[in-house]
Design a protein around this nucleic acid. Structure first.
Lengths: 207, 207
DNA sequence: AAATTGTTTGACCATTTGGTCAGGAACACG
DNA sequence: CGTGTTCCTGACCAAATGGTCAAACAATTT
């Protein structure tokens, strides 16, 4: 299913060039909106040359997408049932926020795909992603019924972590437009805020 | 700047038909990804006829966008400094969630535009939106320093409300893919969760 | 150096796309 | 009814787009 793996240095290098350029383009234009000419220009290669390394526009896109999905879930995988529940969840949120800071293009690529109906990733969502989420939701659920954190719906907790953290990558323009200063200090404020948000939510207390 | 207003019933009706169809198409494909043929087909009119009512693809899009932005901020406008602070904020979040349930296409249209860099709405964001947010942030800030709610960064509070609520419209496919049941009951669960989230965050207590 | 294999390109193609236009059909109204 | 206005369409166009291909160019191997 995936593209044949590189045999020469040139192949290695040019594939990376293309994927890098394609990430730029797809993440800001979506699949349909992106053009091979843009990707070619951005990567410094000619269009036929791009198609020498990838069989089609779609091949580049799905390659990017499948590469991405795996890394994307690492922060959630790292949530362990051993540690302190609140720390684990807060840390998960902060790790996710960090990914938004480090890899905003990847986040936007994903956002574009999902907003537009996830036409070429739906099975990944209903398969592996769903399983992972259910597993971790079970862990949280256990913490909850053991009284170690305040009761919450674990699925919606996870959704809220996704949305609040990805927001800083996906809606970056909006965030910047409202907090006019150019500085990136708002990521620190976001960190503080999220720590607060989930600590207060989960600290045992009210029903 | 806006299209001349309708003079006949036919104009009225067909404009609405077009905008309705265009909302469908633009919200799932983004501006570049959408085509006039799709909009024409969806609206049941011929392509030249669509262009009889709107001067260009872009004209349809910007019309939709400017119409939208106004209604979109109503829930925030309704946040009053009079009422009980926590109720006001929780109610705001619930109103916003309700909009995600009622107008998911509008939410997705907006999401597409922002994710792709807000090329034709940036000034609206840096202008009116920014002003409104700052005004309401000031209100929240006052509540905060009066000790009526626990201290929080008001801007990031607002961002978190936007993201958590819009998530249910914009990432609908993902949400459904994970909570496999077809039923829409998850909106009720979301409501409960958000009520909890913001009540716990804002109830005076911890630093 | 010749032969083989891998890389790059200019020219080309079919289709799609946003948009135009001349004229016809439907409607309004005196 | 007739005449002006609004509405609608088929035919058309130029540009953009995804993709192909034969041939030129480099690298590598023998």
């Amino acid at each position: 299913m995936s593209e044949k793996q590189p045999r020469t240095r040139i192949q290695q290098k040019n594939r990376e060039l293309i994927l890098e350029a394609a990430l730029d383009v797809f993440s800001t234009e979506g699949f349909r909106g992106a053009t091979l000419d843009q990707i070619a220009a951005q990567s410094g290669l000619s269009k036929p040359n791009v198609l020498y390394y990838f069989s089609s526009k779609e091949a580049i896109y799905t390659q990017l997408l499948s590469q991405l999905l795996d890394t994307w879930l690492d922060p959630l995988r790292a949530l362990e049932s051993d540690g302190d529940p609140i720390d684990e969840i807060v840390d998960y949120a902060l790790r996710k926020l960090e990914m938004s800071r480090e890899f905003p293009r990847e986040s936007r690529l994903f956002a574009n795909e999902i907003v537009q109906g996830a036409p070429r990733i739906l099975d990944q969502i209903e398969g592996p992603l769903r399983d992972l989420v259910n597993a971790k939701a079970a862990v949280i659920s256990d913490w909850s019924s053991a009284g170690r954190i305040a009761p919450v719906d674990p699925h919606h907790l996870i959704f809220s972590i996704w949305s609040t953290t990805q927001h800083y990558a996906d809606f970056d323009v909006q965030v910047r437009g409202i907090l006019n200063p150019e500085g990136e200090s708002h990521f620190n404020d976001a960190q503080t805020f999220l720590k607060l948000l989930y600590t207060r939510l989960l600290s045992p207390g009210a029903p």
